[in-house]
């Protein structure tokens, strides 16, 4: 044992090095809090999110995970703490961190229409019921300044087939679609502007199991191909395992454990995470 130690001390301190060019965070969250009542909301949440990284937030309903997602995506002003985002906010080249709640509301809304996307659990919350499927996709392109009808329609058609919806349905209203199709349409609507960051709230929550698998596989493929950064809220640990690089476990407004996804699920440390993991039926 002592021989071993001497070998190690000779090599000097352990150095950590992260390779690749994506070595600066896209989002830096520091001590973010929003409490409606003690244990209601979220408290003291901090993390960094890097380009191409998928962060899962798991926990039971009422743990504050959806509220947290709203605050992270600029839709709910927190009581304390900050969310810094590195993006192309007005005037800079996407090189500096901008305080999400320090910028004008119009700027946050612009981010949500262009560089960010939000996939809601109930697809109709994120779609326009009285606009055709193609129009739902094209609307985000128009928000980004595109005006050529032919090119918008062409992109809408391509995205329909990318999310496995028959192109022949382009002029149909989303209200005539099945739940699974609506969810895929919502995803296409979000991805058409090539966002950097996507927020998802239980994206497979309302779907039948057979439809879930297809949607999950689609999401996994798109996240890989487009190198998206994603923050996904889910209570389904299988969904978390399939999509997330790392996890935060929430209970009663606090993050009780976080780490690499497979480590948190295979070697949970906190009593609550152990309970969560052991409650899943094995198959």
């Amino acid at each position: 044992m002592t021989a071993m130690n001497s070998v190690i001390s000779k090599s000097g301190p352990v150095q950590q090095k992260i390779h690749g060019q994506a070595d600066r965070p896209l989002l830096v969250v520091d001590a973010l809090s929003k409490l409606y009542a003690p244990g209601k909301g979220f408290s003291e949440v901090s993390f960094d999110l890097y380009p191409g990284e998928v962060l899962g937030i798991v926990g039971e309903s009422g743990s504050g995970k959806s509220t947290l997602l709203q605050a992270l995506s600029g839709r709910l002003k927190p009581d304390a703490g900050s969310v810094l985002y590195r993006g192309t906010v007005k005037g800079d080249q996407g090189d500096q961190m901008n305080d999400l709640y320090g910028m004008p509301e119009s700027e946050r809304r612009r981010l949500l229409r262009t560089e960010w996307g939000v996939v809601h659990q109930h697809p109709m919350d994120g779609l326009r019921p009285r606009v055709s499927a193609g129009g739902n996709i094209g609307e985000r392109l128009m928000a980004k300044g595109l005006s050529h009808y032919g090119s918008i329609r062409e992109q809408a058609l391509r995205w329909l087939s990318d999310v496995e919806i028959d192109q022949g349905r382009v002029d149909d209203m989303p209200t005539t679609f099945s739940g699974g199709m609506q969810q895929r349409l919502q995803i296409a609507r979000n991805l058409v502007t090539h966002p950097q960051l996507i927020f998802m709230d239980e994206p497979t929550g309302g779907l039948d199991v057979s439809v879930q698998a297809r949607l999950l596989d689609l999401l996994r493929r798109l996240v890989n191909e487009l190198n998206l950064s994603v923050i996904i809220v889910t209570h389904d640990l299988a969904v978390a395992r399939l999509l997330a690089d790392r996890l935060m476990v929430m209970k009663q407004s606090r993050v009780v454990e976080s780490g690499l996804t497979d480590q948190v699920l295979d070697d949970p440390q906190h009593p609550y995470t152990q309970l969560l993991v052991s409650s899943v039926l094995q198959n």
């Binding site: 352990v14 950590q16 090095k17 992260i18 690089d245 790392r246 690499l260």
Partner: peptide, 19 residues
């Protein structure tokens, strides 16, 4: 040892482990 550096897995960040 990774690319000439020593990394301690026991204390590395999730990101470093994925790498």
């Amino acid at each position: 040892q990774a690319d000439g550096y020593w990394l301690d897995i026991a204390s590395a960040t999730p990101r470093a482990i994925l790498q």
